[in-house]
Design a protein around this nucleic acid. Structure first.
Length: 724
DNA sequence: AATCCCTTTATTTTT
DNA sequence: TAAAGGGATT
């Protein structure tokens, strides 16, 4: 059998992983070590060498993008398409299982999925019903609590209600679950938990899948949470082999429940696990890898891994100490423009990475001022836009009248005379009778019940509108159905009624929704059994779409470090490396959280192929306040020999520029003597803090804020300042 | 029902 | 600073 196409392109470590004998394997794959290739080749190997069929494989990822890529590459290696291969995200696969076995799962056939925003609205609704003070019990906190409990596999009744605090939250959890049940909806965490419970309670199903999935492959294992680990342990039975790939050094989602310990746990739970390491890196220069290795070596409890390359040392890492965030942006943009103009680099080869989203603004302004095309990743996704969610809420209600969350969203959008009073009456009736809002409305309209005539008429008109739409669009195609809905509900007219640009955007988004519905293909067995509308709504919830349009243009890429994971760029600007910002002040206290910040820095550094440029600002305007900052400890943790300090503000000539490490070399004597923020003593003005330095040599001036004498510029040579 | 004004809050995010 | 949400006002 010729498997040279699977084996030849691999290095020895990759080869060992791909062709490992059957059994469990844990592949510790460093950044840029070819883990996706190993995973896909392993899948193909199992079929072509070990005699598995695609039907025997289960491949799990975290994002839809990764799932699509893996499916494509496995099918390519196998020369097949549309086989019985199950590749998907944890949530996508759970969804599929629940659709196939909705009865066993105790769900209505047309159940729908709540996204985070839907969930938050619902939790808020519940808390108002329970008359909880939202200041004492923030909604987001309750939402986080519920999700965290579900991620740990716990139901409300599993919680310790003796503790008053937990007890109160458990009450909300229970009421929320009840509301989800009666509306026939599930949230993201519920997809996982419900699947686990279903398999535990239906051993015949469990046995079936365990017999089927002889080979389970998992990507990004360091990102799994408690329930995902349980899910895997269930589906991979005693006869199955589990092949997992992960990198403890790239675990950056601990704050949302990911458990790096699952890597170790796996090794204990699955006996005879073969542990393999992929340490050869094909992405970055030696300089970049050395920097990354040195930085991450400071973390404790690592599984241990050291990246190496056969490639060139490459450019040193550039470090720029900016005066403020605008100077930082100016430096970044001027540098990248020079690279594009002089080295012929594509703009899309350049990324600006930062710790928090708020930092993007300054870069956007600088880029815009110089007319450099750019793209900011993150932000609102297509299916999360308000107008799209309004439209989807109508569709959800058409598919399932009991979806009270959807009803609440659009019952008075556009305004149709159903105000808060009326809706409140509905809520009370629904709660008292234990029925959905729709059923309550139906009851009030048909039997009367204290509604003013005008409200009753408006409510009847609404009920008739939805019923009429559902009846008239039965059998219509999805786009036709949407078109009818948008017109008859008045939603389109409502959204477009002021002719503003914003309104125009919304109308265009609605058109795009219709297009998306037209392009939507039901492509798997579970969905084939579903109503097209139900399938489309699930698709909208599970795959929220792209963040920003404009990807076709050759754009500079702006994103947070978190969203950069998994990507690579020839040139990376890592901005805002300041204490308090990165590492973030909220994470510096706890050692564990600080180490996660360090891993984030490691992820950022290892995104760069050729060149890495790091910057920080000595003062930064944040929340309307100008603050002084000192360079991030992560800068100090890099090997000085690999870092070239750029001092664009001062044209430095002469022998003082000869050194190399940060803090010397290009830095002037003055700067070496007095760091920003340092406390100094002056013979006349007393104590003060160094704010700024300018110039070098005998002309150097230094700005000091004195406790009593105020802020002054002094000539360093004459000032005779003493460090305190 | 729309508008204004005040308070609050500001890390990271996929499903 | 600035954005978003909530409450009160018109």
């Amino acid at each position: 059998m010729d498997v040279s196409d699977l084996i030849d392109p691999l290095n020895p470590a990759q080869r060992e992983a791909v062709s490992a004998p059957l059994g469990h394997a844990l592949v510790l794959a460093g950044a840029g070590s070819g883990k996706t290739r190993v995973l896909t080749h392993r899948a193909a190997w199992l079929v072509r060498v070990e005699g598995a069929t695609p039907w025997n494989l289960l491949a799990v990822t975290f994002t839809n993008k990764a799932a699509a890529e893996m499916r494509g590459r496995i099918e390519e290696r196998l020369g097949i398409s549309r086989s019985g291969l199950w590749v998907g995200t944890f949530h996508g696969l759970s969804h599929r299982l629940l659709r196939l076995h909705w009865q066993e799962a105790g769900l209505p056939q047309g159940f729908q999925i709540l996204d985070s925003e839907d969930q938050r609205r619902l939790v808020k609704r519940i808390m108002r019903d329970l008359e909880l003070d939202e200041n004492r019990w923030p909604v987001r906190q309750l939402q986080g609590f519920i999700n965290a409990r579900k991620d740990a596999g716990e139901r409300a009744e599993d919680l310790d209600s003796a503790d008053p605090y937990t007890g109160q939250m458990a009450r909300v959890y229970a009421a929320y679950e009840q509301a989800c049940r009666s509306a026939g909806v599930v949230d993201f965490a519920e997809l996982m938990l419900r699947t686990v419970e279903m398999l535990q309670n239906h051993l015949e199903l469990l046995g079936h899948y365990r017999r089927r999935f002889r080979h389970v492959l998992v990507d990004e294992f360091q990102d799994t949470n408690g329930i995902q680990y349980e899910w895997l342990k269930l589906l991979a039975g005693p006869e199955s082999d589990v092949f997992i790939v992960g990198d403890d050094d790239q675990s950056i989602y601990g704050w949302r429940g990911a458990r790096v310990e699952n890597l170790e746990r796996f090794r204990k739970d699955y006996s005879n696990t073969r542990v393999l390491r992929l340490e050869q890196n094909y992405r970055s220069t030696r300089t970049i890898l050395d920097a990354a290795n040195t930085l991450i070596a400071r973390n404790s409890d690592r599984l241990g891994k050291k990246l190496w390359t056969e490639g060139e040392a490459g450019e040193p890492i550039a470090l720029y100490a900016a005066f403020n965030e605008q100077d930082e942006a100016r430096f970044v943009v001027e540098r990248l423009m020079a690279m594009v103009d002089e080295q012929g680099l594509a703009r899309s080869d350049i990324a600006i990475l930062y710790r928090s989203n708020a930092q993007s603004r300054t870069f956007e302004e600088a880029l815009m001022a110089r007319r450099v095309p750019y793209r900011v990743y993150g932000g609102l996704r297509f299916f999360e836009r308000a107008e799209i969610k309004d439209a989807l809420a109508y569709l959800r209600l058409m598919a399932n009248r009991d979806d009270s969350a959807a009803l609440e969203r659009i019952i008075n959008t556009p305004t149709r005379g159903i105000g808060n009073r009326t809706v409140e009456t509905l809520r009370i009736a629904a709660r008292d009778q234990g029925i959905s809002l729709w059923a309550a409305a139906r009851g009030l309209v048909t039997h009367g019940g204290g509604l003013p005539a005008r409200a009753g008429n408006a409510l009847r008109a609404f009920l008739d509108l939805i019923d009429g739409l559902a009846a008239d669009t039965a059998g219509a195609s999805l786009p036709e159905c949407m078109e009818t809905m948008l017109t008859r509900t008045g939603l389109r007219a409502h959204l477009g009624k002021d002719g503003s640009e914003r309104a125009q955007d919304k109308l265009e988004n609605l058109d795009e929704l219709i297009t998306a519905a037209g392009n939507f293909e039901q492509d798997n067995t579970a969905e084939a059994e579903m109503e097209p509308l139900t399938a489309f709504l699930a698709h909208a919830a599970l795959e929220a779409g792209e963040g920003q349009a404009g990807a076709w243009e050759d754009c500079v890429q702006l994103m947070t470090l978190h969203s950069a994971k998994g990507l690579e760029f020839p040139v990376v600007f890592l901005a805002g490396l300041e204490e308090g910002l990165f590492p973030h002040r909220m994470s510096v206290e706890e050692p564990g959280r600080l180490e996660e910040e360090r891993r984030l820095a490691y992820v950022g550094i290892t995104r760069a192929r050729q060149q890495l440029l790091i910057s920080y600002a000595e003062r930064r305007r944040l929340h309307g306040r100008d603050d002084f900052a000192i360079a991030s400890r992560f800068i100090r943790e890099l090997p000085p020999a690999l870092v070239d300090e750029v001092r664009a503000r001062f044209s430095v000539t002469g022998p003082t520029a000869a050194g190399t490490g940060p803090g010397e070399g290009a830095a002037t004597a003055t700067e070496a003597e007095f760091g920003l923020g340092e406390r100094v003593q002056h013979s006349r003005f007393g104590e003060g803090i160094v704010l700024d330095c300018e110039g070098n040599g005998p002309n150097a001036r230094i700005q000091v804020n004195f406790n009593s004498a105020g802020t002054k510029w002094l000539v360093a040579a004459y000032a005779n300042l003493e460090r305190i």
